[in-house]
């Protein structure tokens, strides 16, 4: 109980003092997760939409694989990317290992299947409603993809938030490929892991509280924007 109390006090102090080190770490966390979310959205959402509309042999297998990949252990994803980006690996000449770019890739790889699988579910329901009308307008599956993505935008926002949540909470992959380098690749989650291993549990918990508040804020902001847009656009 005493630890929890001092964690709360420490969290408040961190925010109140605008601790520069923490703000830099927080900024990096948000930038990395948002960049990963952007990449994953560009790949995952159209993929999900395509799976919602297209009927081809092996589609079921792809859907099952995608659902399974949602549970991909971060450490496994991190390890794969580590081996790819290592100087001894096939993409070693990119020089991305132990950089924020590597963390972006790792998070993007982790959440792309999440965005694809969840958006497939959301858009399949929409497609069921739209399919006849769109075909009547002469739109094939390829043309239906952007239409579904746009018309499903409010439901997809929730999907994006799920992806963002997973990305910003992730530690196993980013610590592997980012290296947790102070001032360079240290994110909120890797800082929490570090403070935990230094035995400064109140500080670790305080950082965790700050992260939760930020993620909560991002969610509230997105939901607020969604509500306003929904009222205006239906």
């Amino acid at each position: 109980m005493q630890d929890l109390g001092s964690a709360f006090m420490a969290a408040i102090a961190l925010v109140r003092d605008g601790d520069a080190g923490m703000l830099a770490i927080l900024g990096l966390s948000l930038r990395v997760s948002l960049a990963a979310l952007g990449i994953a959205a560009v790949v995952g959402l159209p993929l999900g939409a395509l799976l919602a509309v297209a009927r081809f042999p092996g589609r079921r297998a792809v859907v099952v694989a995608l659902n399974a990949l949602m549970g991909l252990p971060p450490v496994v994803a991190g390890l794969l990317i580590y081996l790819l980006l290592s100087r001894s690996g096939p993409l070693g000449h990119w020089g991305l290992l132990f950089t924020p770019g590597a963390m972006v890739i790792a998070q993007a790889v982790l959440i792309t299947p999440i965005l694809a699988a969840l958006s497939r579910g959301v858009l399949e329901a929409l497609w069921e409603e739209y399919a006849e009308a769109l075909r009547s307008f002469g739109a094939g599956p390829w043309r239906a993809v952007p239409t579904l993505l746009w018309d499903g935008r409010f439901a997809l926002l929730t999907v994006l938030l799920a992806g963002f949540g997973r990305a910003s909470a992730e530690v196993g992959a980013v610590i592997l490929v980012g290296g947790n380098i102070e001032g360079f690749t240290r994110t909120m989650t890797t800082a929490i892991a570090l403070e935990t291993s230094k035995g400064d549990l109140p500080l670790a918990l305080a950082l965790g509280l700050v992260l939760m508040v930020i993620v909560l804020g991002v969610n509230a902001l997105a939901q607020g924007l969604r509500d306003v847009a929904l009222r205006r656009a239906g």
């Binding site: 132990f98 924020p100 770019g101 590597a102 001032g183 291993s197």
Partner: peptide, 28 residues
Amino acid sequence: GLLLAGFALPAAAQERFITLASTTSTEQ
């Protein structure tokens, strides 16, 4: 694109740098 996406160069980062693999004891 990935470098930009990750904002690979925070203000404090050096143009010239080395990567040093070391032990938890020396850092922590």
